[in-house]
Nucleic acid binder design. Structure first.
Length: 838
RNA sequence: GCCCCCGUAUCCCAACUGGCAGAGGACGCCGCCUUAAAAGCGGCUAGGUGUGGGUUCGAGUCCCACCGGGGGCACCA
């Protein structure tokens, strides 16, 4: 009775309301002064501690943080805090991807410099991140728009150029008429619109800078195999599709009045069925081939095609068009003469820009042949019930060669794979073809006709041509432009800064001009994770020794809108840096996890729908911890979180329940847990054990559920079990505080203090699991007959299979269920299950 | 058209290498507290895994087909 009274007394003392905001205010300055999260390079370079590099995509500074940031930071912090508790030296840096168009557009609107908007927003976001309690190492903070950062972006550009991986070419490029700049292929969406602003992208013929991503296509593709499993599957799949590897052959055709023309095909076995050749109308080749007699027709057709928008060109169901160029090609297998046509259904920048027309095997060629009355020959035998037109499936080769046609090769009757290799072998022998691999990936167009980016460090000299800015003159800083000077006009605003543009040539000293384009901001973000290693080093981009010590990144978290943009570019940069000898690893991100979106009522949050949820408002209402907990608990990290389906109030309630435990504990710190209640201790140790496994596989929502169970069990122990003085209650509550510190650091810190520990819980270590406590005293074994549960037995967890079988067969309920039938087979899985087959 | 992923309770979601379908939460309901309500606290309820086959002693889990949802690529030869 007395005990019970004491408890009542105590709990009334603890009914003080848990003031989340006061707790936040209380701990932030304490953490700040303890400098808890600074990564120690020496600990890692010396090998004293094992490293973990945790990275989350750095934000673009547009306004304040939103719910999406809140989710990714919450998830990211779980893993980095977990690693720290496990005793790793953790590098967890943060910075800003601070070049980009929104700042420039804001500057035009408000008649100011883009830096004003940029750095004001950075400070706002910085304050919010601090308030959010993420365990970032702020000593490595960087902004890509700082000259001390973009100096090295420019340096890397020059190194890439030295290696022949950055070059200029004239080519039709994607042009956004709204942003008035060119775009990379990756920045044009599937529907032909601009990834940034949604305008319909058009084509322009311009001389622009490119990175030679295609040089690494094969490796970028092959390494995806190694990433499979540790990267989230859909991103690997998206990159595979984007790089788009196709195996096939190059086949060379002699052409009248021209050098021989090579085409790419994935079906060399259908070469006997080629009845024409088609060339991309916008390729230089078409212009070279056309005869004077057909030139007028060709040019009229080409001009008409150029006027069509990308959207029209992308439609796959439009009728085939084209013009005859007046020349013929020769089939290398048969010597047959094939008319050469120009068309818009062949792409100038894929393969060789020319294709062999095989109407019997390709639906597009079928339609083209039908439209223009060209012959159709089948070279693969379709099944008897085939009702379609072109047939590209499996079947024996026919008409290869056709009756009456002479050829040095005969593949009739061969299945597709064999017919392919036989054809390639023959062509190679004849010197008119070879097996090859083609990629869908194009080179990365990096020039942008906008102001707020890193200037391309090149000087154009009428005498010496392209001259790199000497390294000791880097960075090439942006000239001061503001407001209306920045208005998009189709050429870079930098061109207007004449004093900046006109320079003397570093080589000959004569008058020359700077390149006025800036780099795509994806260049900035392709290497920022290297710069974090040496964020303030003004002698090098990063220290290779630190890259060796810290790299590669152990877990990268971000959104899947970057599946083929940033992630592909960062992989490309890493491979080039490796080939420059600066690092010794092949892939930047050992593991990649993409977090889902935060939506509301099944829809993306947006102003027009009026379903936006303000992060600041939620934090004010429920507190930081409750919001973090809600986002982590809602679903597996990669799934979307629908704000309409979650309950931040429920999270806040749970945190209070946890917090109250700490006030109920009456034993002193360091109480001998060995004396504690074994049942509760088992729950505690099992929870720690499972939590570790769940954390390693990123199932953070389930970790939270386990902590909830532990809180419930501890509550029961206090109220109706061993009582608050039992050391097991202290052990359980301390464990709750430590586990909770991954998700709800403020509440955990407050609990830690109430439990009598000095700050910080972030410096605690991961609880050591006692294996003996993971073993149950008795387990329930299920006895099945024909797979149906017919009995249960309480058995020892280390019972032998034979003993369990005997016990099962002796169980009265089982005997009754067998009902005298013959036992044919008994499957025993000690100690959990026996299945009897009768 | 090609390539991936996912369908479990009213909802969000658990279920280790196939082994008792249910951990946690929301919603709802019942108590306690309260003059009352809200809040708070304690407790309770639920379906057989989208459909149809197959493999197996045993399938949410593996295989096949279909239905539904999501994503990537796409006149890429």
């Amino acid at each position: 009775m007395r005990d019970r009274d004491e408890r009542v007394e105590m709990s009334s003392e603890n009914d003080v309301h848990y003031d989340v905001h006061a707790v936040e205010e209380k701990w932030l300055p304490v953490w700040e002064s303890l400098d808890l999260f600074r990564a120690d390079d020496a600990a890692v370079t010396s090998g004293t501690k094992e490293k973990r590099y945790a990275l989350t995509m750095f934000p673009y500074p547009s306004g304040d943080l939103h719910m999406g940031h809140a989710e990714v930071f919450a998830i990211h912090d779980v893993i980095s805090r977990y690693w720290r508790l496990r005793g790793y030296e953790v590098l967890n840096p943060m910075g800003w991807d601070s070049f980009g168009l929104p700042a420039e557009n804001a500057a035009i609107k408000n008649d100011e410099h883009p830096a004003t908007y940029t750095y004001a927003n950075i400070e706002t976001q910085y304050a919010s991140m601090k308030r959010y309690g993420v365990s970032f190492d702020w000593s490595r903070r960087l902004h890509t728009s700082d000259p001390e950062y973009y100096k090295w972006t420019q340096w890397l550009f020059l190194k890439f150029r030295e290696k022949g991986l950055a070059y200029r070419k004239n080519s039709p490029v994607n042009w956004c008429p709204n942003d008035q700049t060119v775009l990379a292929n990756e920045q044009v969406l599937a529907d032909g619109t601009c990834e940034r602003c949604g305008a319909v992208v058009t084509k322009r013929e311009l001389t622009q800078w490119y990175f030679k991503t295609t040089e690494y296509a094969q490796e970028l593709y092959d390494c995806l195999d190694d990433l499979q499993g540790s990267w989230i599957g859909k991103v690997v799949n998206a990159q595979r599709n984007w790089i788009g590897r196709s195996e096939g052959a190059h086949v060379t055709f002699d052409v009248e009045n021209h050098e021989p023309v090579t085409v790419f095909t994935t079906r060399p076995d259908t070469l006997f069925g080629t009845t024409f050749m088609v060339v991309a109308v916008d390729a230089k080749l078409a212009e070279e081939l056309v005869t004077d007699e057909h030139r007028a027709d060709f040019e009229a057709y080409r001009d008409e095609i150029r006027k069509a928008s990308d959207i029209d060109r992308l439609a796959t169901d439009r009728p085939k068009t084209g013009v005859f160029l007046g020349v013929h090609a020769t089939n290398p297998l048969t010597g047959e003469k094939l008319p050469v046509w120009a068309t818009d259904y062949v792409l100038a920048d894929y393969g060789t820009g020319a294709v062999m027309g095989v109407p019997g095997g390709d639906q597009r060629d079928w339609e083209f042949a039908t439209t223009f009355g060209l012959p159709i020959v089948r070279t693969t035998q379709p099944p008897s019930d085939w009702e379609g037109e072109a047939f590209h499936g499996e079947g024996p080769a026919i008409n290869s060669p056709a009756a009456g046609v002479t050829s040095g090769l005969d593949i009739n009757g061969l299945p597709v794979a064999e017919a392919k290799s036989a054809t390639i072998a023959y062509l190679s022998e004849q010197g008119s073809g070879e097996g090859t691999v083609n990629f869908r990936l194009r080179d990365w167009l990096l020039s942008r006709q906008r102001y707020w980016g890193a200037p391309i460090p090149i000087i154009h000299c009428p005498v010496d041509g392209e001259v790199p800015v000497p390294e000791d003159q880097l960075p090439v800083e942006l000239p001061e432009l503001r407001g209306a000077d920045l208005k998009p006009k189709g050429t870079s605003p930098l061109g207007a800064a004449t004093e900046w543009v006109n320079v003397s040539c570093p080589q000959c000293g004569g008058p020359a001009t700077r390149d006025t384009d800036t780099m795509d901001t994806f260049v900035d973000s392709s290497w920022y994770f290297f710069r974090y290693l040496s964020a303030h080093d003004d002698t090098q981009a990063f220290d290779p020794a630190l890259a060796e010590a810290w790299g590669p990144i152990d877990l990268y978290i971000g959104g899947d809108e970057h599946a083929v943009l940033h992630l592909l570019y960062a992989r490309f940069f890493t491979k080039v840096l490796r080939d420059m000898g600066l690092i010794d690893w092949d892939e930047p991100f050992s593991a990649y996890l993409s977090q889902g979106k935060v939506i509301n009522n099944g829809r993306k949050m947006s102003k027009s729908l009026g379903n936006g949820v303000s992060l600041g408002g939620q934090l004010a209402e429920y507190g930081v911890d409750a919001i973090r907990l809600t986002l982590v608990f809602a679903s597996p990290p990669e799934d979307n979180v629908d704000w309409a389906d979650v309950s931040p109030a429920g999270s806040a309630k749970f945190l209070q329940r946890a917090w109250r435990l700490a006030g109920d504990v009456t034993s002193s710190p360091g109480a001998d847990v060995a004396e504690g209640d074994v049942a509760l201790r088992k729950v505690t140790h099992k929870t720690v054990h499972e939590a570790a496994q769940l954390l390693e596989s990123y199932r953070f929502n389930v970790v939270v559920a386990r902590v909830m169970e532990l809180v419930n069990a501890t509550r029961k122990a206090i109220d109706s079990g061993c009582g608050p003085a039992d050391p097991a209650v202290r052990e359980a509550t301390e464990t709750v505080a430590i586990l909770l510190s991954l998700v709800a650091p403020f509440t955990a810190e407050e609990m830690w203090a109430r439990l009598g520990h000095p700050p910080s819980v972030a410096q605690a270590s991961w609880p050591v699991v006692e294996p003996a406590l993971l073993v149950d005293d008795a387990v329930t074994a299920v006895v099945q007959i024909q797979g149906k549960v017919r009995g249960r037995l309480e058995v020892s967890p280390d019972i032998s299979e034979a003993d369990l079988e005997a016990a099962a067969l002796a169980d009265p309920a089982v005997v009754k269920a067998i009902d005298g039938r013959d036992v044919r087979k008994v499957i025993v899985r000690a100690p959990k299950l026996v299945n009897i087959v009768v």
